[in-house]
Design a binder for these strands. Sequence first.
DNA 1: TGCACGATGAAC
DNA 2: TTCATCGTGCAC
Length: 183
Amino acid sequence: MKKLPRAFYNRDTITVAKELLGKYLIHLSQGVKKIGKIVEVEAYLGPHDLASHSSKGMTNRTRVMFGPPGFAYVYFIYGMYYCVNVVTEEEGMGSAVLIRAIEPVKNIEGRTQGPGLLCKALQIDKKLNGHDLLSDDFYIADPLTNEPFSIVRKSRIGVAYARHWAKRLLRFYIRGNAFVSKS
DNA sequence: TGCACGATGAAC
DNA sequence: TTCATCGTGCAC
């Protein structure tokens, strides 16, 4: 499968978010190649986006978000789950796309509907924070066959605190896909 | 040094 | 609607 090039990530965050739908997220863990198809994502635009972690500025936690595109930003939340993001746009922009759900393709056990669950199923944890997605053990690739689908655009989940930014339609998912976390 | 609060998920 | 559970950011 063809790994997505750095240039794919170095573009407008909303464009990257939409184009990530249908792509394969691949993690080689303990010799096992786990593959999931991305079916739901959310765009986090940068420091001006009040729902984005980068709105706190560059801190020890958000450092990776402000780094170059095509790297993984993995954070720990609610004392029990990890969430994966893909850094987008030029270095310093603080923008990223949160992967919210995947459809199991290969070697996946457990549920994958939701950012916390998919990380658990793919065995993604803080060790992968700052990992290059052009590496050979954790990356995103084009699927072998592309099936057409339509995209649903909704507001993001769990960001009510972000005032008007909570209303922005920055969540995208594959219409009708059974593995989307919330319709 | 302490504390309030999540880009969640599951149970009640 | 509540709870589990802990790292982070910011107030003191």
